[in-house]
């Protein structure tokens, strides 16, 4: 039962005029998974989610939910699926209670008043029931939106960048909330530009430029990148980067804050390679140490690859 595929896309293409937003995406979401669709803005995340939610018609390829085409069966699908748009618009001139009531009636939820109270307690808005939605803070609006999309007890929830533009405290609260929902058996597909949120997912899809570059568990993502990372601290950072980029074993150099992350391939002692190169050019090195590759390193590596392809299938 837990292996049941809820969402699937095969060769999904979404084209707006002459721009391809999604260029052939294959993906699957199984019951009880928390799948993160991670990538930079403009990578096709929203288009992918909207097709899967039955809000947008795919230009080509297949998108299925519960084994049926998402567009053709969208009305039935909307009873089983929740979709939280990036800018989920509430009715600002309706109260918290009225907003939820509206969506409850739209979905025809039986005994919705009980459900509403439950949800308001869950998201912590029970003290604000008669407040107009426009008068809520950003985080509270987000929680109300979540309550509205959950009123019909969907089996799967699609969230489009739910934490973008939300303060860190609210972000953590929001994720805690999502964790509670997952505990109750909800399946999630979350689009986010934040790499650090990948760690909260059971599986991550790295999306860039309309394609899925990687499909793996979060801890496996760094392994997708060959070589090892040396963190270099140097006064003349820009010059150091230029010099290192010319070295044979150095695959690429990225700037991380005031350090450099240098990826070295095919060398037995990567730190020595870096120190020698910089020493030869007379650039003083304050520090050079090997560090474990992080998600961000892997992501930068993957988005730089000239040939995007799925590098690894999820092991489960």
């Amino acid at each position: 039962m837990s292996d049941e595929t809820l969402l699937a896309a095969r060769g999904l293409v979404v084209r707006y005029g002459s721009t391809d937003a999604v260029r052939g995406v294959d993906l699957e979401v199984r019951r009880s998974e928390v799948v993160g669709l991670i990538g930079p803005d403009g990578g096709g995340k929203t288009s992918t989610l909207r097709v899967l939610a039955g809000l947008l018609r795919a230009t080509a390829g297949e998108a299925e939910a519960f084994g049926a085409d998402t567009w053709r069966t969208r009305r039935a699908l909307h009873h089983r699926l929740g979709y939280l748009a990036q800018r989920f618009a509430l009715y600002g001139d309706l109260t918290v209670d009225e907003n939820i009531q509206f969506f409850a009636l739209m979905y025809g939820v039986p005994a919705w008043k009980v459900r509403r109270t439950e949800l308001l307690e869950l998201v912590g808005l029970e003290d604000f029931r008669s407040r107009l939605a426009d008068r809520l803070s950003g985080g509270m609006k987000q929680k109300l939106a979540l309550a509205c999309t959950l009123i019909h007890s969907p089996e799967i929830l699609l969230l489009d960048e739910p934490t973008t533009g939300v303060d860190p405290v609210t972000r953590r609260e929001f994720w805690r909330l999502l964790a509670d929902l997952v505990g109750e058996g909800l399946t999630l597909l979350i689009a986010t530009p934040y790499l650090d949120e990948a760690e909260r997912c059971t599986r991550v899809l790295l999306m860039h430029d309309g394609r899925i570059l990687a499909d793996a568990r979060p801890q496996e993502i760094p392994d997708l990148m060959p070589g090892s990372i040396v963190e270099v601290t140097a006064e003349q950072r820009t010059r150091a980067a230029e010099i290192l980029a010319e070295i044979e074993n150095v695959a690429d150099v990225s700037v991380f804050g005031n350090t450099l992350h240098v990826r070295v391939e095919g060398a037995r002692d990567p730190v020595a390679v870096v120190r020698t190169a910089l020493g030869d050019s007379g650039v003083p090195v304050e520090g050079a140490r090997p560090i474990p590759a992080g998600l961000e390193d892997a992501f930068l590596y993957l988005t730089r690859s000239p040939e995007p392809e799925v590098l690894m299938e999820a092991s489960s």
Partner: peptide, 14 residues
């Protein structure tokens, strides 16, 4: 304009 259309579209409304 307010974006609530997208919210409506995610419901089974005709």
């Amino acid at each position: 304009e307010r974006g609530t259309m997208e919210s409506l579209r995610a419901t089974p409304i005709r």
